[in-house]
Design a protein around this nucleic acid. Structure first.
Lengths: 152, 152
DNA sequence: TTTTCAATTGCAAATCATTTGCAACAAAAG
DNA sequence: CTTTTGTTGCAAATGATTTGCAATTGAAAA
């Protein structure tokens, strides 16, 4: 019983490599989109749409555009969407070739996030799928706790 | 390495037992609260606030009251909150004595939900907590896939 | 490079889920 | 039965996200 073999290597791609990836999905490379990719590139953390928006050089684009772009990037498999404690979606770049499968450990006090390499055995998922007759089963797993700084 | 020992036995409690549980948390048993508990009792599925509201006998109470009640029941440990594919929170009754720790397998097509007994080794969680210096670590885990009816 | 056209954006208004202030009300305690 | 304090209804406020539409702009074609 071995743990699942998701990739966790993170060689951060350059912006051109990212725009190429997007272009491959038959999409235009626009100012806002390049800016968003660059921001995600520089923040290896899950960011909310608002955070991405406020990182934009001088209000470069509309909030709605960020929302639209995030959907686009998500469908292109270039970002992964997360939901933690609050109602806001958070996004993180998925490295090329990675299936984007990894998890987080979130501090319930300060909201700090740590990427988690560990994952449980893929056997469990297969067993669950088989037992219930489901196909294409995936999972979402997030850990929550109190980080060292917020203890005491 | 054994799987975690969460309880999964579900002997559905009667309404009086439920109201007693709530009373123990020093809270008044009101019409809306009893109605909500009864609805949750009769639907061993995660329900959205809206669904609970529309199950109420003739609009018995305000939507805001349902929201307030769900927070109350959550703090009392009587219901568990879930977030699946969409933005709406879903609630399910937690059996007395259960730690409310179990998971779901959700169909991404029809939204059907199956309760999942399986869980991964508790060792993994301990290891993650120790490695990062976090305390009181818990996790949220949900499975997604295509159910038998929605395949093909 | 310039033309052309569909994809994309900005803006404002619309939705959706959820929360909150406040006065009227109703359980539970005495 | 009265008091006390938690609860509710209602309406308005939030916060996140979506959408219609006209104006704009990448990128393919000429």
């Amino acid at each position: 019983m071995k743990t699942c073999s998701h990739q966790h290597t993170h060689k951060r791609q350059e912006l051109p490599a990212l725009t190429d990836r997007l272009r491959r999905h038959a999409r235009k490379i626009t100012g806002p989109r390049a800016a968003i990719l660059e921001i995600l590139r520089q923040h290896p953390h899950p960011l909310t749409t608002k955070e991405i928006f406020s990182e934009m050089p001088r209000g470069e684009c509309d909030l709605a555009t960020v929302y639209r772009s995030m959907h686009l990037l998500e469908k292109a498999g270039m970002v992964k969407r997360f939901h933690f404690y609050d109602g806001a979606a958070r996004f993180e770049l998925v490295e090329e070739g990675s299936d984007g499968h990894y998890h987080h450990l979130v501090c319930i006090r300060c909201s700090g996030v740590v990427k988690v390499e560990e994952c449980f055995s893929a056997e469990i998922e297969k067993k669950i799928a088989a037992k219930n007759g489901f196909k294409a089963v995936t999972h979402k797993l997030e850990f929550f706790g109190v980080c060292p700084n917020c203890q005491g």
